[in-house]
């Protein structure tokens, strides 16, 4: 994959994530972690090669069907990408609203999820008034609220303390237990090692390791 006429940021990356698996995506800055996630959540297209999602070649999927595919993918963006004019509650409810759900059907779930990520008293707050950690938790809540089939997270614990990082990790593990495939890009080697989950390691745009846990051994 390349951006415009730049050099390739991802080269010969080939792997498959089994449904219901949990992986960390590691590598130094510029290794291509965010680009790989963008390819999976359909924000970018590969300049060569193919990507299959849910058993379908994404290039063969009609543009009108892509939104339905995107609804099955939850994304925690590195820069959060919250809508500043919407309250925390409205931001989290956004994917459910877009999917056509009725407010009375999901508002309790949204409230519970916000409580779970520690934003019980900040439901009516606008994102600009939230701290970095609160924004991060809000972004995570939005990504998981519709129980996606795949959860992609780009440095989801980058702005939170250890206690919150573990809490967030537990949420991801819980979602994974419920059947969601999880792929988390992270610099936090300590967290990755503690989780014991397998790793995809990128360096220089190439996949250097796949499936090995930082605790050692094949996952």
């Amino acid at each position: 994959m390349r951006y415009g006429r730049s050099t390739e940021v991802l080269k010969d990356v080939s792997f498959a994530l089994a449904p219901g698996s949990f992986h960390f995506l590691t590598g130094p800055s510029g290794a291509g972690k965010s680009s790989l996630l963008k390819l999976i959540y359909l924000a970018e297209r590969p300049s060569r090669g193919t990507i299959e999602l849910f058993g379908r070649d994404v290039e063969a999927i009609a543009p009108s069907d892509r939104p339905y595919l995107r609804r099955r993918i939850g994304v925690v963006f590195q820069e959060f990408r919250l809508l500043d004019h919407l309250t925390a509650f409205d931001n989290v409810a956004l994917p459910l609203r877009i999917a056509g759900g009725k407010p009375e059907a999901y508002r309790t779930d949204v409230a519970e999820l916000l409580s779970w990520v520690g934003l019980k008293n900040r439901m009516h707050a606008l994102p600009p008034t939230l701290s970095g950690g609160e924004k991060q938790r809000l972004a995570i809540a939005r990504a998981v609220v519709n129980r996606p089939d795949i959860l992609l997270a780009d440095e989801p614990t980058g702005n939170v303390d250890d206690a919150h990082a573990l809490r967030i990790l537990k949420l991801f593990v819980e979602l994974n237990r419920l059947g969601t495939t999880v792929l988390i890009a992270s610099h936090d080697e300590d967290l990755v090692a503690r989780s014991g989950q397998p790793v995809l390691h990128l360096e220089g745009g190439r996949l250097r390791a796949f499936g090995r846990s930082l605790r050692g051994g094949q996952a």
Binding site: L42, R70, R71, R81, L83, I98
Partner: peptide, 12 residues
Amino acid sequence: ETIEVLHLSGAK
């Protein structure tokens, strides 16, 4: 930015 977020959240 709003358009991108809506788009990536699965809005038609």
